[in-house]
Nucleic acid binder design. Structure first.
Lengths: 335, 335
DNA sequence: GTCTAAGGTGAGAGCGCTTCCATCGCAGGA
DNA sequence: TCCTGCGATGGAAGCGCTCTCACCTTAGAC
């Protein structure tokens, strides 16, 4: 199957240059094109990819970097959906996807990505405020798109959602329902999502003139951390608990129910992410839909855009979120 | 960061050939080697990957093909763990991993893999008895290792577990406990795992001189199919239900409990896979541990072995399975 | 009939590396 | 002292493609 353009050229009775034009969409007469395509079809001969890459400077391969510990990667549907979205968008453009996970330290991963080369560009998840891998990629000359972003990444292309605004919306939803002592269980320290959602919550509470003293508990995005945070908060007495993600909300729900309290009558509960399971909890969870799959797709699109016209400069995309209201805040029999 | 060997050579005061030897482990005097390495370190210049690939015929990139519908891919931890195992093994050898999922038809995926090229070899999951993608890869000149195998793949390298034997073991475990009417919920039609596990079950029942009429129900590896299969079987009356995977066992468990029956007193229940959740069911599920992560690693090792010595011919690896006995068959208070 | 323009095609110069082969210097044996 | 052999190094020939440039053909305008 691996042949050379010269072989194809000989079999088609044209020059190598013409075969190359047929393959790459150059200007060729219809008759010649058909003849060459027929030969390619018949012989199953593929042009050598390495040579194409060397001569053209493009490999058609995009790197996807998710430097995440395996348990997180595979338990948290966030990454799966993101990967899926990227995979869809890349396959749309017939691009290859090289995957880099968290097997090694960030420094070593960075060095390997750059050393192995062959990439036209790279998409990297930027969950943490501080990340040497992201810094290294941005500093390299490899076109890079972030999923998520740090405030410092103003000069980089990224795709993200407005966590602050989304948390605003959720908080004001809880306020509208008459809750006053609204607590927030934060995400893991040092993550963009965690910090921004906290900011949004604080902003909206301040706007409503309500204090947040004793109402903020640090979580870690895990179910267990949600459960223990809820225990702490229930002891202090709260009207509602807004967790920084769905997993923590699930943990909180367990704690609440184990105390014989009901949701939302005794305590309203809200999450963030709208993962699959959120709709199947009892009661179904009010949360924020992020459209993670879409984020993955969009990241790929931004990268393609840059590759096809490097002059455009960094593109920043903030995708919309959606408040999904379910029975965990408004009650089963609400209007 | 992307420079040329000539630049490095000039800066080190040696020829390009010598720089190449330093990078590729040729014979170079220690003094020269150190000097060149120092320059590389200092300048962060990386040799051009496409040129290396073209000249050497090796890219250092392995393809991983999991042609699975996204929902399956991300709900079923099997694929996650497999991917994780491969990723670990590949990263061990500093190889890149190009991932191909089920975005397109098998035929189109095949054609894209071959067209995009750049791969040193490929690992492909072979779940189905009949699979044009697997056939195509085997027929290509790309070194290929299967995870799972079809009987026809005698000339291919593969890594798998002995499903027949494992099902034997599980069935005989159930027999040893005194069960006689042991039912089997099969996997999806046309899958190697499904057919082989059924074969193992049948074989052991025959060995025990027991009939299986009316005791085999076709499932589809999904929780829902397990639930409905169990309903059917309970109507007919059974001592035990052996499901072809854990997900179906979970479904069956729901059905059993919804009828007010207890496991294992009224019906013993067994699964296959030993996924994370199996140990946390109520009661914990007796099942077969497959060591999926290990399968992934092993597949990569087999491929590397072949690449370093193509003369060895196909390698076939059958990994051991382990019967994991829990309360769903022996009861909570059993000795 | 001549001139121009434009589309189609082929020749050839790289792209940056690996690797074979030739060369060189030097140590040790005769 | 001369020769041999070996490890270290440089030179240069590709690897198979893209892409520029020049050439040729043909159609259309005058």
């Amino acid at each position: 199957m691996a042949g050379t353009l010269d072989e194809l050229a000989a079999m088609s009775g044209v020059s190598r240059a013409t075969v190359s034009r047929v393959i790459n969409g150059g200007s060729v007469s219809p008759a010649t094109r058909d003849r060459v395509l027929a030969v390619i079809e018949r012989t199953n001969l593929r042009p050598n990819a390495a040579a194409r890459t060397l001569a053209s400077g493009r490999s058609g391969v995009i790197g996807v970097v998710m430097h995440v510990a395996p348990p997180d990667l595979f338990c948290d549907p966030y990454f799966s959906q993101l990967l899926h979205g990227m995979s869809d968008a890349l396959s749309e453009r017939a691009a290859g996807m090289m995957l880099w996970l968290g097997n090694r330290s960030k420094e070593e991963t960075l060095s390997r990505i750059l050393w192995l080369g062959l990439l036209d560009g790279v998409i990297v998840t930027a969950d943490n405020l501080d990340d040497p891998l992201v810094d290294g990629l941005l500093a390299s000359e490899l076109p890079t798109v972030l999923v998520g972003h740090r405030r410092a990444d103003r000069s980089a292309s990224y795709v993200d959602v407005d966590h602050v605004h989304a948390a605003d919306v959720m908080t004001s939803h809880l306020l509208d329902l008459g809750n006053r002592r609204i607590a927030h269980v934060t995400g893991r320290r040092g993550t963009v999502a965690g910090e921004d959602r906290l900011t949004g919550y604080r902003r909206e509470m301040a706007r409503a003139g309500l204090p947040t003293d004793g109402l903020v508990v640090e979580g870690a995005f895990s179910r267990a951390s949600g459960a223990s945070a809820a225990a702490e908060l229930l002891d202090r007495g709260v009207d509602a608990i807004f967790c920084s993600n769905d997993a923590m909300a699930e943990g909180a729900l367990q704690t609440i129910r184990s105390r014989g309290l009901t949701v939302p009558e005794d305590v309203a509960l809200a999450g963030f992410d709208d993962l699959e399971f959120a709709a199947h909890l009892d009661p179904p969870l009010t949360t924020i839909r992020q459209g993670v799959h879409r984020q993955g797709e969009e990241a790929a699109h931004v990268l393609f855009e840059f590759l096809s016209d490097p002059g455009v400069g960094p593109r920043r995309v903030l995708l919309p979120t959606e408040l999904v209201v379910r029975a965990s805040t408004v009650g089963a029999g609400a209007p």
